[in-house]
C-alpha cells in the first residue's frame, strides 16, 4: 500500500478546499465581474428579502417576546417552553406527521408510476395527460376543498352515495375523530401530484436511450430496466420531490380551515393551523413565532435526513 507523505492533502480534499476558499478570497472581484447577473437577480432578491427573509427573521425575534402592539417585551425562552408544554402542540405534531408520512410517499410513488405510464404514450396523448394531471396544481386549494367537502357530505356526498350501492350505511367522514384525518389524507393522496409528474417526465426524457438498448441486449425486461435504470437515474428528481412535498405536507392548512377547522375536537389539528390560531385568533404572535421556529426546525431536520438518505452520490 502506498503511503501518503506527511502534510500532504489528498487530491479530492484539496479540490474541495479550493472550492470553498476561492470565492471568499475573490468575492468582490467576482461580483464586479458578474455585475450584470446580480442586476438580473436584484428584483427577485428584493422581493425575497421583503416577503421572506424579513418576516422569517421577525418571526424568530418575536419568538423571544411577549408580543404587544405598542412595545413587546423580551421573555427569553418562555414561548418555547410553552410550545413544548402545550398538549395542543403535540396533538398537532402527531396529526401533521401522520399526514406527511402517508401523503408524501403516496404522492411521489404515484407520480413516478403515472409518469412511466404517460412516458410510453405518443406526443399528443402525453400532452393531454400531462395537462390533465397538472390541472389540480393550478386550481385553488379552496375550490378543491369545497368540492371534496361536498363529496364527504353525510346526506348528499358522493362517497356515501357510492357506499349505498353496496348496502353500506352513510359515514360521517368529517364529523368523527376516527375518520376525519383519514378523510383529509385520502383527499390529498387522490389529488394528482402534478409538479411531480411534470418533473419526472422531463427527467425521463433526458435518460440516454443507449442505456435501455444495452439493457435490452443483455436480456433485461421492462421491469428490470425500470428498477435498474429509470429509478436510479431519477434519484435526484425523487429527492427534490420528496423534499418539496414533505415541506408542503408539514405546512398543510387550507384543507383544514376549509373542511374541519381542526375538529372534531382536535382530530385534524395541524401545526400550521395551530400557528394560525395562536397568531390571528389569540393574537399571541410571540408564541406563534416560537411554534413557527419549531416547525422550521422540524422541517429542516426531516430535509437533512431525506437529503442524506436519497442524495445522488457521484
Amino acid at each position: 500500500m502506498t503511503q501518503m507523505p506527511m502534510g500532504a492533502v489528498p487530491k479530492k480534499k484539496e479540490e474541495k478546499m479550493k472550492l470553498f476558499r476561492k470565492p471568499n478570497k475573490n468575492l468582490f472581484r467576482q461580483m464586479k465581474k458578474n455585475y450584470s447577473a446580480y442586476l438580473f437577480l436584484l428584483p427577485k432578491l428584493i422581493l425575497f428579502t421583503l416577503f421572506v427573509a424579513i418576516p422569517v427573521v421577525w418571526a424568530f425575534i418575536l419568538s423571544f417576546q411577549k408580543y404587544k402592539v405598542f412595545g413587546s417585551e423580551f421573555i427569553g425562552l418562555e414561548n418555547y417552553i410553552e410550545v413544548f408544554q402545550s398538549e395542543a402542540f403535540w396533538i398537532a405534531l402527531k396529526n401533521t406527521l401522520l399526514f406527511t408520512v402517508v401523503t408524501v410517499p403516496f404522492g411521489v410513488i404515484s407520480a413516478l408510476v403515472l409518469s412511466v405510464l404517460i412516458f410510453e404514450l405518443g406526443k399528443l396523448s402525453q400532452s393531454i395527460f400531462r395537462s390533465a394531471f397538472y390541472l389540480p396544481t393550478v386550481t385553488s386549494m379552496v375550490i378543491i376543498a369545497m368540492v371534496w367537502r361536498w363529496m364527504y357530505n353525510y346526506d348528499f356526498g358522493l362517497f356515501n352515495y357510492v357506499l349505498g350501492w353496496f348496502g353500506v350505511g352513510p359515514v360521517n367522514w368529517l364529523g368523527q375523530s376516527s375518520t376525519a384525518l383519514w378523510a383529509l389524507i385520502i383527499m390529498q393522496c387522490l389529488i394528482p401530484f402534478g409538479v411531480g409528474i411534470i418533473m419526472y417526465l422531463a427527467s425521463m426524457g433526458s435518460i440516454s436511450q443507449s442505456l435501455y438498448e444495452a439493457a435490452r441486449m443483455d436480456g433485461a425486461g421492462k421491469f428490470k430496466q425500470w428498477i435498474h435504470i429509470t429509478i436510479p437515474l431519477l434519484k435526484p428528481t425523487t429527492l427534490y420531490l420528496v423534499l418539496l412535498s414533505t415541506i408542503g405536507s408539514f405546512q398543510v392548512f387550507t384543507q383544514i380551515i376549509m373542511m374541519t377547522g381542526g375538529g372534531p375536537g382536535s382530530a385534524t389539528e395541524t401545526l400550521v393551523h395551530l400557528i394560525y390560531k395562536t397568531g390571528f385568533r389569540d393574537f399571541d404572535f410571540g408564541l406563534a413565532g416560537a411554534q413557527s421556529v419549531v416547525l422550521f426546525a422540524i422541517i429542516l431536520i426531516f430535509s437533512i435526513i431525506q437529503f442524506r438518505v436519497l442524495r445522488h452520490d457521484e
Binding site: N153, Y154, D155, N172, L174, G175, T260, G263, P264
Partner: peptide
C-alpha cells in the same frame, strides 16, 4: 336530529 347535529357545517 340528523347525524350532522353538532358538526361544523353552518351553511348546510
Amino acid at each position: 336530529a340528523p347525524e350532522t347535529l353538532g358538526g361544523n357545517d353552518v351553511g348546510g
